[in-house]
Nucleic acid binder design. Sequence first.
RNA 1: GCGCUAGUAGCUCAACUGGAUAGAGCAUCGCCCUUCUAAGGCGAGGGUUGAAGGUUCGAGUCCUUCCUGGCGUACCA
Length: 560
Amino acid sequence: MKQQLEELLQNAVERLKSEGVLAADTTVIIKLDRTKNKDHGDLACNIAMMLAKAAKMPPRALAEKIIAAMPENDIVSQCDIAGPGFINIFFNEEAASAIIKTILDEKDDFGKNNSGGGEKVQVEFVSANPTGPLHIGHGRGAAVGDSLCRLLAATGWDVTPEFYYNDAGVQIHTLTVSVTARAQGLKPGDEAWPEDAGYLGEYIADVATAFLNKETVEAADMKVTASGDVEDTDSIRTFAVAYLRQEQDRDLKAFAVEFDVYFLESSLYEEGKVEAAVQQMIANGKTYEKDGALWLKTTDYGDDKDRVMRKSDGGYTYFVPDVAYHLDKWQRGFTRVINEQGADHHSTITRVRAGLQALEQDIPEGWPDYVLHQMVMVMKGGEEVKLSKRAGSYLTLRDLIDEVGRDATRYFLVSRRPDAQLTFDIDLAKSQSNDNPVYYIQYAHARVCAVERKLAEQGIAFELDKTDLSVLNEDTEKALLKTLAHYPQMISAAATKLEPHTVATYLKELASDYHSYYNAHKVLVDDAIIRNARIALGLATKQVLKNGLDVLGVSAPERM
RNA sequence: GCGCUAGUAGCUCAACUGGAUAGAGCAUCGCCCUUCUAAGGCGAGGGUUGAAGGUUCGAGUCCUUCCUGGCGUACCA
């Protein structure tokens, strides 16, 4: 609908060009905005104001000419000129209600488009190290990252979700020592507790017990059986990693998040990719030795100081394997990569990009893209829940899912702009009341289902073909139609801007429109024409609610 | 100090990449269940969009300076 109008306006502009009203070299992007006020019609166009200066004509006068130049058509019922020069466009009723048929025809595909053109995109998210359970910050990453994947898939991209983890570094050493100490029967605080056994949580004791019992653990990308031998450091390490990966997999599964690829940092070392990347940077003259360390000239790429690559003890700093990892992504053919991660790692962005440029592989300067999410603050009982690994007050993602449910957890974590701090109010998320937006949206869906059930009970037939949708003339009906028609643009914008929270906001609006409508008008009225039209409107609403909830990974229940 | 990021109603947040009178929910107050699910709806009050300048037909949105918070600023990851 919007596209058709854009063409109509484009035609009008071309015509004015040929008539000499507008300069022949005028180029415009037709921009149509949804209106906030229904007196302003269905769509508003600001083109007259944009072109007024170039045309040397007052915007309102130009608007008149544009309207006059618009070709004949059967979708516009009226065009007004308003305010400083807006063109307000009103659809006729047949055109407005036609969206219902589109929705009911396209079903789960309604709102999708092919703007990605089947191009490959990789989305890396969560990427938690296997040193403990997932916490609420990982949960936010999982909710945002997964919704991004769904949005990109819905807009024609070939999406590969990927999980990267460190299975070899200092933290893994700490984990191994911690598990070993527990397996020896030690507790944090004991005199013999090793200094470098830095993980003090009780879950470490669980890992140790499982190890001593020679259990077998299985994660998405591995399967390990414990040797049970406390002296066997290798076995302890691989078992502990697998055990915690298994735990994380369970959490992710409970959260309905799946990955195509699990990528091990250790594989980069094993295949010599880290060393190869370093050698390439040295060969390109982007490095220098100083104070016994190897430095990368990141200042050549906008950093405020150069960074150490290889420490004087011979080990690489953390961003070096990261550069090798991203080169690998590039070589796998991902011309687009999106990294979803916590904002506390944002200093790595400059370094990784600088490292990639220093490789001189013709990787575009701004590659890869990043979506950073801010901290999550947890509230319970009106108080902030302090999250500290050391103090042991550790709220895991699984605790949260168990307590408030998957749907509410996912919805809340994805409902704010990623780059704004998020307050997660456990009491609110749990409450089954009207202040909880998740239930509000799901309830709208369930209400449509209830009408359907009632319809079946009463044995009334519903035939879409024999329905006259243009009878949907009530204000609340028109508002609902307008919101439904906006869904595809909303999806498109959310995907382009990488902002899944837009979907959450939209769904609240759509649910609100339906609740208002439902309250104002009875669906199952005696008049068959009106009844059928209203049922169709309800079914279309239900479909769009479901499609939107799908993007967020939230269920659309049939009863509540 | 420097960098990134945010600052919108008492509270939690929106605002369609610059549009018209800045919108919801909660909280407060007043209404609506003999009617398809009241986990709902209708109405009222509540604002100098942190501050000051600038850009233009038009700014919460873009630019500059300042204030406040978060994060970062390691030969930690």
